[in-house]
Every structure is written in C-alpha cells, then in structure tokens.
C-alpha cells in the first residue's frame, strides 16, 4: 500500500498513541453456489490507534460492511488476523460494539431497558446500574423517553438508543455501520454532532463506515478509501482539519474538494 496522503497540516491525535486494533492481511472470499467464490476483501492491513476516528469510505458493494462484520466477530475472515490490544479476536464481544444501520433495538423492551440490556450480567450493584442507565439516557438526550418503546420513537432517537446501549458497556472500539445513512439531513447533522461530542468525552476508538464524503471529512482523523473488485484500501487519507469543524468553512470545503479529487482520480 502507498504511504498515507497528507492533506493540510498537523495531526490532532498523537501519532504515538498505542495501537488498539491491528488488522493484518485480512481477506474474505464468499463461496457462491457451485460457481467458485467471490473475493470481497483482499489483503487489508491497517492499524487504529487509541482514540482515533477512522472513516471507511466507499461505494456500496466494496466490502466495507463485510470488514466491519469481521472486526465485530460476526463472520470469520478467509485469511489474516484481527488483533485487539495484541490479542487475536474471533468472536463477538462487548469490547468491540457495533451500531447498526438498521434498527437493531429489542422491540419488547423500553428505551431504558434496551440501554440496560448489556449491563444485566455485569458484576455491579443495582443502584449503580440504574444510575448508569440514567446517565447514558441523558448523555444521548433521551431522559424523557426512557419508558417509550422503540416503535414509538423516531429513527434518530432509535440511533441515540443504539449508541447509548453500547457506550454504557465501555467498549474499546466502536464499530459503526452507516449509522446515520437512513436519517434525514437535519437529523443526520444532529447525530454527527452528538457522536463527536460523545467521542470528545469518552475518547473511544471509532471505525465509522460511510458512503458520504462530507460526513467522512467532518468526522474523520483518517479516511480509508475503499474500492471494489476486490474490496481493499486504495488510499489512507489523513484529515488534519482542526476541530470543531464547520461544514461552511473554507478549510472544510478545500479539504472536501481534495478528498473528492483523490476519489475521482482512482
């Protein structure tokens, strides 16, 4: 792979931060009925440092969701390894939590119960669990909606619940699979700001899959540009814009244009 392209100047996250997630020569082939196999991901390697926000950008069908599913442990790679803090991972676990694009809340539980779900078997006393649930309810701005059921709230609110129920588990890495793609533009912007605020607060390592270039430039420390046939990283772009970023700033727009030109050159 080529060395990372640099856009603008210094990088806000320390380059010396320890590597949290290392992906080494990951490949995935899917068997097709009788007709051999399709290569979805080929030879992917990269490292995510602690507290880094990495956007995985690419058009649909380029294997970015497959990559996320492998990192989450939902499917096994055909070859290569995923390491979290040096330990190979093979199955799903609360150290790598996923925010899905589709509604993945439990419809028979209230918002509050959905957020409390992952805490159930944790060694923590009841009062502490309760206060944690309330804290995360308020962090995502849903204090007044704790007793609602998922079918009674809007798409944006559902994604807030999805974020709260995984943040409460204090995951090492947050994997987000186009979490805001199904929302309207205004709500999407709200959610992007909410996620950035929470990220500032908790300093999670975040892998954020998106097909929206503007979203990637707004959120990312680094953009991994995916291309298809077979899926792989074509460019590793560092976005050094200072935060908070504003979409109507000249610097933002310049950065967006440069990223676009890299994409179009491929």
């Amino acid at each position: 792979m080529k060395p990372p392209l640099h856009i603008a100047t210094p990088w806000p996250r320390s380059p010396e931060a320890p590597a949290v997630l290392s992906i080494e020569r990951l490949s995935k082939r899917f068997e097709t009925n009788g007709a051999g196999s399709v290569s979805v991901l080929r030879d992917i390697s990269f490292t995510a440092r602690r507290g880094e926000m990495i956007c995985i950008l690419g058009r649909s069908g380029c294997g970015k969701s497959t990559l996320l599913n492998i990192l989450a442990g939902f499917i096994a790679p055909s070859s290569g390894t995923v390491r979290l803090n040096g330990q190979p991972v093979s199955r799903p676990g609360p150290d790598r939590c996923v925010v899905f694009q589709d509604d993945a809340l439990f419809p028979w539980l209230t918002v509050r119960e959905n957020i409390a779900f992952g805490l159930k078997k944790r060694p923590m006393d009841r009062a502490r669990k309760k206060s944690e649930v309330e804290r995360f309810l308020s962090l995502v701005g849903l204090t007044d909606f704790g007793d609602y059921f998922p079918h009674e709230i809007s798409g944006g609110m559902k994604q807030r619940v999805s974020i709260a129920r995984v943040l409460i588990l204090q995951p090492e890495v947050l994997l987000m699979d186009e979490p805001f793609a199904a929302l309207d533009a205004q709500t999407r912007e709200e959610m992007q700001n909410l996620l950035l605020t929470l990220w500032e607060k908790f300093k999670h390592t975040i892998l954020f899959v998106t097909h929206d270039v503007g979203e990637a430039v707004l959120m990312a420390d680094r953009i991994l540009l995916f291309e298809k046939d077979p899926g792989g990283i074509r460019e590793d772009i560092k976005i050094d814009l200072p935060r908070p970023r504003e979409k109507d700033e000249r610097r933002f727009f310049a950065c967006y244009r440069k990223t676009m030109s890299i994409i179009n050159r491929l």
């Binding site: 899905f100 993945a104 129920r165």
Partner: peptide, 26 residues
C-alpha cells in the same frame, strides 16, 4: 432478524442466554 442476535452477541450474550433473552421474546 439475525441483527437482533448479533446485537445480543456483541453485548456479551452467549447462545443459551440469547435463546431465552432474545430469540424466544422475538
């Protein structure tokens, strides 16, 4: 939906508990 079971798995729910906490209610 497999997503519900995946969501349970990533929150640390193993198969047996997942059957009673997710599969049967769903």
């Amino acid at each position: 939906s497999p997503i519900l079971l995946q969501a349970g798995a990533m929150m640390g729910v193993r198969r047996l508990r997942g059957t009673f906490a997710i599969l049967l209610p769903a």
